Computed example of a mutant assay.
Amino acid sequence: MAAEVLAHELRLDLYHIDLSAVVSKYIGETEKNLRRIFDAAEAGGVILLFDEADAIFGKRSEVKDSHDRHANIEVSYLLQRMEAYSGLAILTTNLKNALDTAFMRRIRFIVQFPFPNAAQSAEIWRRVYPAATPTDGLDVNKLARLNVAGGNIRNIALNAAFLAAEASEPVRMCHLRQAARNEYLKLEKPLTEMETQGWI
Rank of each mutant, 00 (worst) to 15 (best):
A180W: 05
G151A: 05
M173D: 11
K186M: 12
K186R: 15
A161W: 01
A179G: 14
M173Y: 13
F162M: 12
V171D: 11
W125E: 02
P170S: 11
K186A: 13
G151E: 01
A122I: 02
L163A: 14
A160F: 06
L138Y: 05
P130R: 14
G150Q: 06
G137W: 00
A144R: 06
Q178Y: 10
K186C: 04
V148G: 12
L187V: 06
V128A: 13
L185W: 01
E183R: 11
K142D: 01
A149H: 14
A179T: 07
L163S: 13
G151R: 03
A132P: 00
R172M: 14
A144H: 00
L176S: 13
Y184S: 07
V171M: 10
Q178F: 07
F162L: 08
Q178V: 08
A160T: 03
L146I: 08
L163N: 15
A144G: 07
L185Y: 12
R127V: 11
I124C: 04
V148C: 07
T135H: 01
D139H: 02
I153R: 05
E169Q: 15
T135D: 03
W125H: 03
A179R: 13
Y184N: 11
E188G: 13
V128N: 07
A157I: 09
L143R: 01
D139G: 01
F162D: 11
I153H: 03
E169C: 09
E123Q: 13
V171I: 15
G151W: 06
D136I: 00
E188S: 13
C174W: 01
T133R: 12
P134Q: 06
E183F: 05
K142C: 01
E183T: 15
N182C: 02
R127Y: 03
L138W: 00
N182F: 05
N152P: 00
A122M: 03
L138Q: 09
N141D: 14
W125L: 04
V140M: 00
P130W: 07
W125R: 02
L187R: 04
R127T: 15
N152M: 08
T135I: 15
R126P: 01
C174F: 10
V148D: 05
Q178W: 02
G151C: 06
N147G: 05
E169K: 15
T135M: 09
Y129V: 04
L143Y: 02
L185D: 13
N155Y: 09
N147S: 15
Q120L: 01
N147Q: 14
G137Q: 08
A160S: 06
